[in-house]
Design a binder for these strands. Structure first.
Lengths: 334, 334
DNA sequence: TTGTATGCGTTATCAG
DNA sequence: CTGATAACGCATACAA
């Protein structure tokens, strides 16, 4: 690899002059600058960003921590983050935690050792102490889609309680009274909020809380199949299921019809996220939309702006969820 | 940030000793090692990997270049890469090119400036000259899913000609004779191979090559809708469409039924990749499966093994595609 | 306008 | 077993 020194030698100037020329500093003769640039080109010089990072104290990379990049919601977030980061010349280091707190922690540690300039965390569990550590260390980070208990954490989320309310009220409006909820992990804020809101709306409408009709599970299709199968085999089977994300809903869809319960004929089904596969004509899943790509963009924007300004990110952005009615929900008919 | 020096000072030893202790070198007294470790812990010392990378000449990161992380095929590959990289303590830097050669090039440059230890490229266009540059510079890289013209490039692919053959022969076996092909970008090897194989199989069976029944387009749902709409509006409409990936197929599915052509009743449809959404009960897309996660794993494995050994990756792995018959294809009935 | 010297935080070499 | 010392490649304050 050719270094600054090499091109300095080739041109017959000092390394500092080359450094300045490459940084397009005004304090260097136009003509020598031209010579330097040409030599750098010819020698195929590529600045060593590692060395630069060491001296400048900035690495030009941010960490992105998601539970699972194959979940369309998170790949959309990643896409949004990536777009903004790229534009600013930043790299984004991707980490999949599978929602396991131990992995979250070890990733955070790895990324901090790598001296990333900031962190975007979509994987926070509720009592993730490392979030407090980040805050205490004044390390720049933004939470996306999931809050932790840290009081003043910067974040970009949608209003999960409002979203869940939209979903449950939609079902109630359709005449459903036996409404089940398949939630995500219990240690995740968005999961809990959706559950809380589900219970709240039920109560408001004088509907009973049947414990067999609600559960916490993983945000995966397999978990959706399992929970769906269980609930749909109950003596008193729900007439509608609210799934805490679309992937779970798709899992429920998979088993429902196998059990002779056509959707929406015998079972209304509503998801959360509005992943693009929810919109397929054969699927037409009613759902609560979250603007995942945009959330990634906003988070990256806020993070990088703060990083550049040398301050802690302050954005606390709550976006509005949106009910998207398709044809997996229908009026209740007995 | 506390540094090596800080903990050295705290313990009252030299930085070199601390460095050795932290590296668990045997040439350091058990007791002093213990003291150092404890002090490091108490001071919250985290090794600066940037400095380490500079002196060691290795960055502990690999670059992953994909067209679009929101495409399930590539998020699966990313998942596989990430798993292996993590296990080895490597970070993976994600880049989305949207298939644009200029962006591929600028990413490669960025990643090389960042001194990543290797590159996994899923986005190579056929005549990507940077691949030759990588080869010429003996820079470790592995191509995944798409070849370039570089003769001895290391790669992990599936046999695209065989896969396309499986698809077209499946349709022919079902009695179809008006078979269309919606290909991916023309500058992508896998696209071209699938097209070539399509034409070849057609010829072998004495079927005509109708130019309106084949095209190159993007690997996106929108492109699938557009191409599908065009082909299905022809005077002589195909009875079967082979789409070069599942995402395109899903786009076709979207428009077909809108045009009054139920799948598979009036139109048989076969995709490629076997993304997980192809398996949904409502979708049941017949497709050619590629083991995306495994491909990512194999590539990362081969890359990292070579990097650690200080040699160029040599793996040239061709996996077998597999026909997965579901219910988007049916016997031709006139 | 250019060059010299110094430091960023490590690791590695070489004495002790 | 431990400690100076140099070096990795670059940026910058300070001199000239």
């Amino acid at each position: 690899m050719t270094t600054l020194k090499d091109v300095a030698k080739a041109v017959g100037v000092s390394p500092s002059t080359v450094s300045r020329a490459l940084a397009d500093s005004p304090l260097v003769n136009r003509e020598t600058k031209a010579r330097i640039l040409r030599a750098a080109m010819e020698l195929g010089y590529e600045r060593n960003e590692v060395a630069r990072a060491l001296v400048m104290g900035i690495s030009g990379a941010v960490g992105l921590i998601v539970p699972d990049i194959t979940n369309p919601f998170f790949s959309d977030v990643a896409r949004g983050v990536s777009e903004i980061a790229d534009r600013a010349g930043y790299g984004v280091i991707l980490c999949n935690t599978d929602g396991r707190p131990d992995r979250e922690l070890s990733y955070i540690r790895l990324l901090r050792r790598k001296r990333v300039d900031g962190l975007i965390v979509c994987s926070a569990t509720l009592r993730a102490s490392y979030v407090s550590d980040l805050a205490a260390a004044a390390f720049p980070y933004v939470l996306v889609s999931r809050l932790s208990l840290e009081p003043d954490a910067p974040y970009v989320i949608t209003d999960d309680r409002a979203g869940a309310r939209l979903a449950v009220e939609h079902l109630i409006d359709l005449g459903h009274r036996r409404i089940a909820f398949i939630g995500g992990p219990e240690n995740v804020q968005s999961s809990r909020d959706r559950m809380a809101s589900y219970l709240e709306v039920l109560a408001e409408h004088g509907l009973p809380d049947v414990s067999a009709w609600r559960c916490h599970t993983d945000f995966t299709q397999g978990a959706g199949r399992e929970a769906g199968r269980r609930m749909l085999s109950l003596d008193e089977v729900p007439s509608a299921i609210f799934a805490a994300n679309d992937v779970i809903a798709l899992g429920v869809l998979e088993v429902a019809e196998g059990l002779g319960l056509p959707v929406p004929g015998s079972l209304s089904l509503i998801g959360y996220d509005d992943i693009r596969y929810a919109a397929l004509p054969r699927i037409q899943l009613t759902t609560i939309a979250q603007p995942a790509v945009e959330m990634g963009q906003i988070a990256a924007d806020g993070l990088l702006a703060a990083v550049k300004a040398g301050i802690a990110p302050t954005l606390q952005r709550v976006l509005a969820p949106r009910l998207v009615v398709r044809s997996s929900t229908a009026p209740h008919s007995e």
